[in-house]
Design a protein around this nucleic acid. Structure first.
Lengths: 194, 194
DNA sequence: AAAAAAAGAATGAACATTCATTTTTTAAAT
DNA sequence: ATTTAAAAAATGAATGTTCATTCTTTTTTT
């Protein structure tokens, strides 16, 4: 195997181990030694790929966030009508959160704790711009409520994180019907009233 | 000062210090020694009040969660009409999250990490029953969408956590107008369509 | 003066990170 | 194609620190 590919594999194994362990035990109970073991690597090797533990978790966050937004906007075109564009983006996000449950869970944990450096957090936010642009367009066309992006995000997108986490905890099963209800609620909460 | 009151004060100081430090540094960077220092107490004294660190954080969670639900339902009567009851509860929750920001932030962190024992988490959930009963009534009366409690919670209540956290991070200022918009979105997302 | 509460110092384990060697890879020379 | 030596990557075993928890003594309360 090529050297470069091997390095990439090893780095990915470390990132994946970090996600798994932080998801299951929390950052406070995730020692480097366990990460190394899970990635089949010596603890010392981690330091060839990352500066230190904080850097490892920051970079993991940035990578996962990038995967998330890439997936989200992969098939989106900014020429789509507002409602169709929103439906597409919303469903891609829902998809990601259900299929890439571990990744989504990790992001939720990072976004709700001081675990990540402010700088990395900012880095992660950047890529959401297409959605904000869509909303701006929607407001201009009178299709979307004339309301702050934060409020729109809180009601249209963030609830998916809650539902994903609830499902992961085993409290209930998120099926196709639930998702349709959820989309309905999301759209209801942000569309301009007639 | 009476002995009992002194004990209560000391316990409260420990709980408050835990909240402050976990909010600002995360669980992983909150040693017992710092908690003790902030509460003006010897590290050893913590162990007169709590079994160990995990017990301290579990009990803190349960106490804050109880304050949250007590505040939420303090003025609620289950004879109120559904929409009025929901408006009341929603506003109390919003109030709590804005005024008792530190408490709310702490809960959000606990609810999104494996920091709290499952048992304590369950304990914390119990007190939400009046809201679930209200929703059940609302569904029967055709006022609330016939949708799972989890979906209702995700859209009606959880977004407030996101908005509170966003404000705390300084990204935007949550004013009276935002709150009215937020209520409007919350209600839109759960009321049965006409 | 006995009992309870609190304190500070001590203990031992866990951990992040580094160090000294070993293993693997690379690529130049045969 | 093989060999070989230099470079790079990886390792397991230290290292030194930090931390949760306990122990012994002191202070406060009854």
């Amino acid at each position: 195997m090529a050297k470069l590919q091997k390095s990439i594999d090893k780095r990915n194994a470390l990132v994946k181990a970090t996600i798994d362990l932080v998801n299951n035990n929390g950052f406070h109970a995730t020692p480097m030694s366990k990460i190394a073991k899970m990635a089949n690597v010596s603890p010392a090797t981690i330091y060839l790929y990352f500066e230190n533990k904080q850097d490892l978790v920051n970079q993991t966050y940035i990578q996962v966030k990038a995967e998330y937004t890439n997936y989200t906007f992969a098939t989106y075109e900014d020429t789509m009508p507002v409602e169709a564009g929103f439906a597409l983006i919303w469903n891609r996000i829902a998809d990601f959160k259900l299929k890439e449950c571990d990744n989504a869970l990790f992001l939720a944990q990072c976004d709700n704790t001081p675990m990540i450096d402010e700088e990395s957090r900012q880095e992660g936010i950047k890529h959401l711009q297409p959605l904000l642009d869509l909303w701006e367009r929607g407001r201009k066309e009178g299709i979307i409520k004339p309301v702050s992006d934060y409020v729109l995000y809180a009601y249209a997108i963030n609830p998916l994180s809650f539902l994903m986490m609830t499902e992961k905890r085993g409290a209930f099963q998120l099926d196709k019907t639930h998702l349709e209800e959820a989309y309905e609620s999301a759209w209801s909460s942000i569309k301009a009233c007639k």
